[in-house]
Design a binder for these strands. Structure first.
Length: 103
DNA sequence: GTCGTGACATGCG
DNA sequence: ACGCATGCCACGA
């Protein structure tokens, strides 16, 4: 089944994201070889184990915002980590023009 | 086996 | 800038 393989692709892409940078779901999907299937990326992250060690917090939507519900632990965790890595999060928004990782 | 939902993206009004 | 509608695919009820 290719599902497992595409998950692997996604994990690998996440690992390539440098600290202090962020990427959109579409970007990850494209790098993973799944153009247009950004939903799969998001679904994968949701299924991600807690001790996966993958920098899922560097993945945001095309609007430069975090897709998680505001007030949830994941959201808070993501924002905190991003800010620690030097990413400015203003009003829950990130400047993609500055922090977007481009390979 | 069908239906609805989801950590999305893009286009329109 | 914002909300609504459509497309894409996998998964659970």
């Amino acid at each position: 089944m290719a599902v497992n393989e595409m998950h692997q692709r996604v994990w690998q892409v996440l690992g390539q994201i440098p600290a202090g940078k962020v990427v959109t779901y579409g970007q990850v999907a494209e790098l993973a070889g799944l153009p247009g299937q950004s939903r799969m990326v998001g679904r994968c992250l949701g299924k991600l184990p807690e001790g996966s060690q993958l920098p899922w917090h560097r993945v945001i939507n095309s609007q430069g915002k975090i897709s998680l519900p505001v007030g949830s632990e994941s959201y808070d965790c993501q924002v905190g980590r991003l800010q620690e890595e030097g990413v400015a999060v203003i009003n829950g928004r990130i400047k993609l023009s500055v922090y977007r990782w481009q390979p």
